[in-house]
Simulated assay, not measured.
Amino acid sequence: MSRTLQLAEQLISRPSVTPDDAGCQQILGERLAQLGFALETIESGPADFRVTNLWAVRRPANATDATCSKTLVFAGHTDVVPTGPVEQWTSHPFTPTHRDGKLYGRGACDMKTSVAAFVVSIEEFLQGTPDPKLTLALLLTSDEEGPGVDGTVIVCNALVARGEVIDYCIVGEPTAVERCGDMIKNGRRGTMSGKLTVKGVQGHIAYPHLAKNPVHSVAPALADLVALNTAGGWDAGNDYFQPTSWQISNFHSGTGASNVIPGNAVIDFNFRFSTESTPESLQQRVHAVLDAHGVDYTLAWTVGGLPFLTTPGELVTSVQAAIADETGIATELSTSGGTSDARFIAKICKQVVELGPVNASIHKIDEHIDVAEIETLKNIYKRTLDRLEASLAR
């Protein structure tokens, strides 16, 4: 059994459902301390939702190297989503189990294998390069799968406050489609939600002239908003991003009785938007549509994250080359999918990519990863370290 697999199984066996780290970061910290990393635990959140964050950093041994060093951060999370009905799992979700060449367990893909691969790739890198010019760091949180307000963003704010500079960051989110390395994320769309409350007047359905139906009032406006999803109505996207999309997630109205006109309607919706739009421009357009239809409403906005993009440069080139050397794959750059903690890191680091295992089983019953790809992922991380170190030596 490889060291990466051993560590991955050790982490999977810990029931670290958000926000409980369940001792994962202690296991990792002990190994990193042996490599000369300075460890800092940053806790955040209320007593009933206490989040554990780990910032671990190893700087060059002498001042000369430090002045010309660049910092690479491996970023990830030790928390996992709830298991769902345990009886529906073929094997217990927190008992690492092998079947047909696959490792099963909650977090096998998202993302305890990536975290294990981070650490072992660093161990192997330092064996071959004991005094690197590269500054190495890990940023781990137990609040990625939860609200995300006491996790990575807290660490990023602390780093900014003390003047820490991050040059490169690799986030271990599962990004592959069919094989490890076939896709990496060099950006993500922004996310913005709205809660629209349409005001009406409740009344008997047999006397509509004495009431005002909010569903009827808002329906034409909703049709216009839906129509903007076609033909690049919000924006046309660009070479890196799909066009912006607007989707209704929930629609609540009525008392449950069939003879009562509702007094209001509450509609939850979400934008996933490209760099061609801003939160302000999208908000203005929604308000303009609602106002044009004379809808009586209130609207509360929540910006969950801004879009970010890492154009091809040192980090993207190094990762692409590492994947090609290890797998022979010409990796695809993509900005598809949901959000991740990379949205926080991108605010303080210009070069951020996401690279991890195949994402087909994440958050599912019987989450699993191909055992053979665990070493592939670790080797890609190690090759990337080697390439970035070599660039500093030139």
Rank of each mutant, 00 (worst) to 15 (best):
Q6E: 15
L7A: 09
Q10M: 12
S13C: 11
S16H: 04
V17S: 10
T18R: 08
A22C: 11
Q26Y: 04
I27W: 00
G29L: 06
E30D: 15
L32D: 01
A38W: 01
E40V: 01
I42P: 00
D48K: 10
V51A: 13
N53I: 09
W55C: 09
A56K: 03
V57P: 02
R58S: 03
N62A: 03
A63D: 14
T64K: 12
T78G: 11
W89A: 10
S91C: 12
P96F: 03
H98C: 12
G101F: 09
G105F: 03
M111L: 12
K112W: 00
S121K: 06
S121I: 07
I122P: 00
E123Y: 01
G128H: 14
G128A: 14
K133F: 00
A137M: 08
A137N: 04
L140Q: 08
L140C: 08
T141W: 01
E145Y: 01
V149I: 14
V149N: 10
D150S: 15
V153Q: 09
V155I: 15
V160P: 01
R162K: 15
R162C: 10
E164N: 09
Y168M: 03
G181D: 02
M183L: 13
M183P: 00
I184T: 04
N186A: 11
G187K: 03
R189A: 08
R189G: 05
G190E: 04
T191Q: 12
T191L: 11
S193Q: 13
G194K: 00
K199L: 14
G203I: 07
H204R: 08
P208S: 10
P208D: 07
P208E: 07
P214C: 10
V218I: 12
P220W: 05
A223F: 06
L225S: 06
G233A: 08
G237D: 05
N238H: 10
Y240I: 01
Q242A: 15
H252Q: 13
G256P: 01
G256E: 06
V260S: 09
P262S: 09
P262E: 07
G263I: 08
A265V: 09
D268G: 14
D268W: 10
F269P: 01
F271A: 07
F273Y: 15
F273A: 11
S274L: 03
E276A: 15
T278I: 09
E280F: 06
Q283K: 14
Q284Y: 02
V286E: 04
A288V: 04
D296C: 06
Y297F: 13
L306M: 15
P307E: 04
G313A: 15
E314I: 01
T317R: 08
A321E: 11
A322R: 02
I329S: 09
E332G: 05
G337K: 07
G337Y: 03
G338F: 02
G338E: 05
G338K: 07
S340N: 06
D341S: 05
A342E: 00
R343E: 00
F344V: 02
I345W: 00
I345A: 09
K347C: 10
Q351H: 09
E354T: 08
L355W: 00
H363W: 02
K364D: 13
E367D: 09
D370P: 02
V371A: 13
I374E: 01
T376D: 02
I380Q: 05
I380S: 06
L385Q: 07
L385N: 07
L385M: 08
